[in-house]
Amino acid sequence: MKQAYTLSIFSENSVGLLNRITSILTRRHLNIDSINSSESESSGIYRFTIVVKTTEAQVKKLVLQLEKQVEVMKAVYHTDSDTVFQEIALYKISTRSISEGNLVEKLIRDNNARILSVESDFMIIEKTGHKEETQELLDFLSPYGVLEFVRSGRVSVTKPMGELEGI
């Protein structure tokens, strides 16, 4: 059965590694749902967080193929229930269309969002959450005209303790 798996890949900071990693996924015809990279808690060690929808049998093989890369120290996979994860979304909406009534206030209260910036003709709203949550706000705002929308890749930390020791 296919489901979302979060791959966490710990590596050296190499120019071409992203290419190597994505080609391991794409040559198996897997679509990358989301991808993020940043330095980890250990300085000099980078962490890629990649979400793919696939089977457990496949993801097990992926992890071994990823770890096989010279620059990769460790790769692990988790299901959503084994990680705490978030995505961040930004919404740019026209100030005019939304300034009627208490709409803005209600929206922020109901959605745990916040206003990042207010300009004369637009404002930027930020919301952090799971994809369904940021999507829900997008659907809510759509009737008022969303000028721009962007959602980040997933960042995730794992729940099991000890598993990432020795990296």
């Binding site: 120019v15 071409g16 290419n19 190597r20 080609s23 040559r27 010279v70 620059e71």
Partner: peptide, 14 residues
């Protein structure tokens, strides 16, 4: 050539 050879090399570097 780094990108071209990437999936076919154990390691490569410019």
């Amino acid at each position: 050539i780094i990108s071209i050879s990437m999936p076919a090399t154990k390691w490569n570097y410019q």
